[in-house]
Structure formats: structure tokens, C-alpha cells
Simulated scan of single mutants.
Amino acid sequence: MKVGFIGLGTMGLPMTRHLVEAGYETYVVSRSRGPIEKALAFGAVEASSPKALMETVDIVMTCLPLPSTIHDVYDGPNGLIAGASAGKIVIDHSTVDRATNEWASSRLKEKGASFLDAPISGGPMGAEAGNLTIMCGGEEDAYERALPVLKAFGDYIVRVGETGSGTTVKLLNNMLIGVHQSALAECYVMAEKAGVDPAVAYEVIKRSAGFSKSMDWAINAILDRQFEARFSINLLHKDIGLALKLADDIGMPLDVVKLGAEKVAKAKEKYGDQDVSAIIRPLEEATETIVKRHKKESH
């Protein structure tokens, strides 16, 4: 089987590598030469355009940052849709909105092709390890045909329901990240101000009912002051905005999520390019308290 991948970023490039390692003849397209050269080095093949890639392969995967980027890649005379034909499948791993999913699905269906919205969770570490969580929306037949390919880089793969349902679950997940990281900021700063080592507080809470996986994500980045983006505040801000828009569309109040969104927006003003663990930084500045690793006392 021939497959294609568009979006060779921190997630897409290792996902593409896993496809090659799984034995799939893998074609790639990118606007930047750097990612293309890396993909070619581990055995991928370059296509000249999204349209050419779509015409060549059986299944195409995309992993792109914004709804507008989806339209850029899918639409137009050299876009994926122009190269689509009966029996082909397009899988989008991006975190976008349901309207974008429905638009892509409808346009591809006109060509006899199928579409799955299949957002991913697990971060760059999960992409490198090939153990991503993948939440899929779309027709069951397309999902079953795509499942062996998805297993190249995913180890928990679920068809949630029809088109847009994978995106819905991803937005639920990411709005919780905003809430959790905002609450964790207050937790760690409060521990520091109260004279408790935040690392010790983390170890206790990890074994208690208040634990969330967001604590594992953030703790070392905060304590070691290493805020290079694995998942940036800018992207989280975009995703929470999409979640709030969906909530408005279906008449769902999200009072707590809106508080988290305010904290994310505040952090974005100065630290948008940094990791979501940097949501703590405005609170540290406001309280004149820096959360960092404590030196162990020698005895």
C-alpha cells in the first residue's frame, strides 16, 4: 500500500518515519526543504504537490496547524481534493473545528473518496515512540480500512462516531489542558509560597485523588525552567477558542473553561511561543515567586 503525509512538523515527521519503518511506501509534501530532506533520509519519497501525492497513494494523512492551512492544502487546482478519486482515504490529524471536518468530508465525498478526522494526543514524545492516542470520526468502513496504517504510530485508536466526533473529543481534551495547567500554576506557586517544596507536593499529589496527567507534563519543565515548546501556548489558545466556539454553537455553558481560557490568554501575551507549562509564569511574576527545583540538603 502507498501512503502520503503532509505536515512534517514535530508530530508529523516522526509519524512519517513510523510509516516508512512499518513498510509503507510513503510520499511526502512540505513547503520547507528541511523537513523534506529529513523525510527523504529515512526513506520517504517526495511528491511535487498535494494533488500529485493524492493521485499516487491510497491513503493520505495531514497534520496541519490551522483550519486555514487545511483549506490551503486541500483546496485549489493543486490541492488534495483535485487529486482525489473513488476509494481513496484522507485522514486529518490536525486539531481544527467540526465545520472544517464537514467541509473536507463533503468535498472528498463528491470525488468518491472518504475522510476521517483523527486528531492525536501524546505530544512529540508519543509521536517519536509511536504510541499516540488517535480519536477518529467518520464512516466505519473507511476507519476499518485505515486502521492498519494508523497502528504504525498509534497504540490507542478509537472510532468515536461520525464526521467531527474525533475533533469534538480532542477539543474536550485540550480545553481540560487549559483548565488543568491554570490550576497547576496556582498549586505550585501556592506550595512555594507556603514553604513546601513543589517537587514533594507533586510526588504526594501524584499518588492522591487530585492528580492529572498534566502534572507529569509540566513538573520538570517548571522546576528546571525549561519552557521550550512541546505544545505551545499559542496552539492551546487556538484550541480552547475552537472549544468555546463549539460550546456556543450547541448552547453549552463553559464557565470554568472560560476562566482557564483567560489564564491561557494572559500567558500568551508574553509567552505564546513557549510550552503550555509556561502558563505559570504570569502568576509567578504577579506573586514575585519563582517555582524551581530545590537543592537537597546534605547530611
Rank of each mutant, 00 (worst) to 15 (best):
M1Q: 12
L8G: 02
L8P: 03
L8E: 01
G9T: 06
M11T: 04
M11D: 05
G12N: 06
M15A: 11
R17H: 10
H18N: 14
L19Q: 07
E21G: 13
V28S: 10
V28E: 07
R31F: 15
S32N: 14
R33Q: 13
G34T: 15
G34S: 15
I36P: 01
K38V: 07
K38Q: 15
L40I: 14
A41D: 12
F42P: 04
A44S: 14
V45I: 15
V45M: 08
E46A: 15
S49P: 08
S49C: 10
P50C: 07
L53V: 09
M54R: 01
I59H: 07
I59A: 09
V60C: 03
V60K: 02
S68P: 12
S68M: 08
I70V: 15
N78P: 12
N78W: 00
L80D: 02
A84Y: 02
A86F: 00
K88N: 02
D92W: 04
D92G: 03
H93P: 01
N101E: 00
S105W: 02
L108Q: 04
K109L: 04
E110Q: 09
S114C: 10
I120Y: 05
A129E: 12
L132W: 07
L132Y: 08
C136D: 06
G137C: 05
G138I: 03
E139Q: 13
D141I: 15
A142I: 11
E144C: 13
R145E: 09
R145L: 10
A146F: 05
L147Q: 06
P148Y: 06
K151C: 09
F153A: 08
F153Y: 15
V158S: 09
V158D: 05
R159V: 05
R159Q: 12
R159A: 10
V160D: 06
G164C: 07
G164Y: 03
S165V: 00
S165H: 05
T167D: 02
V169G: 05
L172R: 03
L172C: 15
M175E: 03
M175H: 07
I177G: 11
H180T: 09
S182P: 05
A183T: 12
A183R: 10
C187H: 05
C187Q: 06
Y188E: 08
A194E: 00
V196D: 00
V196E: 00
D197R: 11
I205Q: 06
S208L: 14
F211Y: 15
K213Y: 12
K213F: 13
M215T: 13
D216T: 14
W217C: 01
I219T: 09
N220W: 01
A229H: 08
A229Q: 05
R230F: 03
S232P: 10
N234H: 07
I240T: 01
L242A: 10
L242V: 01
L244G: 11
K245G: 12
G251S: 12
P253M: 09
L254Q: 13
V256S: 04
V257Q: 10
K258H: 09
K258A: 14
K258Y: 10
L259I: 13
G260F: 06
G260R: 03
E262F: 10
V264K: 01
E269R: 10
E269W: 00
Y271A: 02
G272F: 01
G272L: 05
Q274G: 00
D275Y: 03
V276H: 03
A278Y: 02
I279W: 00
T287P: 00
T287F: 04
E288P: 01
T289E: 00
I290W: 00
R293W: 00
H294Y: 06
H294S: 04
K295D: 02
K296H: 09
